[in-house]
Amino acid sequence: MELWEITWLTLKVSASAVMVSILLGLPAGTGLALGRFRGRRFLMALANAGMGLPPVVVGLTVAIMLWRTGPLGGLALLYTPAAMVIAQVVIALPIVTGLTAAAVQSLDQRIRLESLALGASTGQLVFTLWREAKLGLLAAAMAGFGGAISEVGAVLMVGGNIKGQTRVLTTAIVMETRMGHFNAAIALSALLLALVFFVNLVLTYLQQGRRP
């Protein structure tokens, strides 16, 4: 029963983090790819650097922000699944943003011209670009999900690995290993790998379409 709860929470936290990252990262990455504004290259470098953010630094920063006396302490989110989602968003968002920008920027320049000439509004143009960049955007989502679900340092710091509340597969693996329960740790690892594979299998089928 506890295993089911841990697995479900793992999936729920990481899926929520990736959804938020896509909702923010897709428009941000597209803006970085298409925009012509001052500071664009700096923001691009920031997104690219963010792809390699050390999770413990993310965990520490989010913990300080959510600490009772911190700027967001009033929200009482520390040691809740919401805090874990926030930490995973900080990790996945630069990945989704950076890879979205790269995918949109590498599109054929004629798509913009052709769409505008066919009478596309700005919204229709953006959706067309996303559809044409589908392969790259799904790769961004997969990489974001991978970064989020495999993360352990930050979720341990802001979630606390509380049984029945914030324990997820990665933190449970760390705990079982520390206690010398290697069989349990190996079983949980196999479950985590299976979960990662299943989600990526679904996304890969979406990405590759009907191609055999």
Partner: peptide, 12 residues
């Protein structure tokens, strides 16, 4: 208006 470019792009 409508345009036909010399190297038209075909959407996927």
């Amino acid at each position: 208006l409508a345009v036909v470019w010399q190297e038209p792009y075909m959407f996927r």
